[in-house]
Design a protein around this nucleic acid. Structure first.
Lengths: 180, 180
DNA sequence: AGGTACATGTAAGCTGTTACATGATTTT
DNA sequence: AAAATCATGTAACAGCTTACATGTACCT
């Protein structure tokens, strides 16, 4: 499975960035749909990449914050990234608390169930809007492909949740009635 | 994020099982679509659950293997599981090597790109077939809901990959030509 | 004056993975 | 007879998360 170092190289292969900016990419950017990393893993990763010569630190322009450190990928770094990209990909790994909860949905308090379903629907709606807005912006083929794939799956999940939400909440209400 | 102990309680809330059988659930069963755990995390988790009184070990029937240990959830265990199920769910976490690779798809060797896309299409087709076969089998409301959600997203991903596969591979071929 | 966003980094701890170690039973 | 499946467990390691520690700059 691709580690945080490689994730950082991926971000830096597109543009120079600081640790802070890399983290924003994982939070909001196009990579956020299938990867994640916090400060606690990014900063040590950058330190290691710097030691290994996979990235260099740019001398900061006098106008920017003195503590800001902007990194750039090196040819060696690009090579390492390329090696990682041409390996056999590991299986996707989805960890979903929500789906685990829904799996036991019929035994949950209907109010809780309805809330977590509603929250997820809201979240998916926002994600779909964001991706649809970015669809006509320029971008390379890979980025557009991945955005399209994310959009397609989010839309499918959204439609399913909207269409079947009441069925599951109904089942939970039934269970509650029986228990009374 | 729900841990392996809770995952095990979830499996055991449905039926008594051994560590080996719990692992099969994560590999093939309906929970496999959104959770995962190997022996190295299941056995220590069961040990801890036993110590805490959340599960008990059943005296094994004389006909079964002498080394097989079958566990059953206790009322205390059910309570712990219920607590976990009624908390606010953490954000879903998807880690996907494939999507990371596809994101840089245009700079990949077309053969590699075509292979990883084909492998994923095959994998999704098998997953869809399995879920469709299990659709008419009995199951409680939560299980059916989650199966339906998984099926809807897999189908959407499959359709997208089949329809757009050639676009990305085409872009990669172009890049290669330019490089020549 | 206060809140938010920018900005970096360390240390401890938790969790989970991988490799190792062992062996019985069933199927081919 | 070999291979696959069943079956459990430990130890070392890798990796990531959380909490801590610190401070600047901008916006209202």
């Amino acid at each position: 499975m691709i580690d945080v170092k490689t994730l950082c190289l991926g971000v830096l292969s597109r543009d120079d960035a600081s640790g802070y900016e890399i983290r924003k990419e994982f939070e909001d950017g196009p990579l956020s749909h299938f990867s994640d990393a916090g400060f606690g893993s990014i900063y040590p990763a950058l330190k290691k990449l710097l030691e290994d010569g996979h990235i260099i630190m740019l001398p900061q322009g006098g106008d920017s914050r003195p503590d800001k450190k902007v990194y750039r990928i090196t040819p060696a770094g690009r090579h390492v990234l390329y090696q990682a990209l041409t390996r056999q990909p590991a299986q996707d790994k989805l960890r979903s608390d929500l789906m685990f909860m829904l799996f036991f949905g019929h035994m949950l308090p209907p109010r809780h169930l309805d809330r977590i379903l509603g929250d997820r629907i809201d979240h998916l709606q926002r994600a779909v809007e964001t991706l649809e807005r970015s669809a006509d912006r320029p971008g390379n083929a890979g980025e557009k492909f991945v955005d399209g794939l994310s959009l397609a799956t989010y839309k499918a999940a959204l439609t399913y949740l909207e269409e079947h939400r009441h069925e599951l909440v109904g089942a939970a209400l039934m269970e509650n009635k029986v228990a009374e």
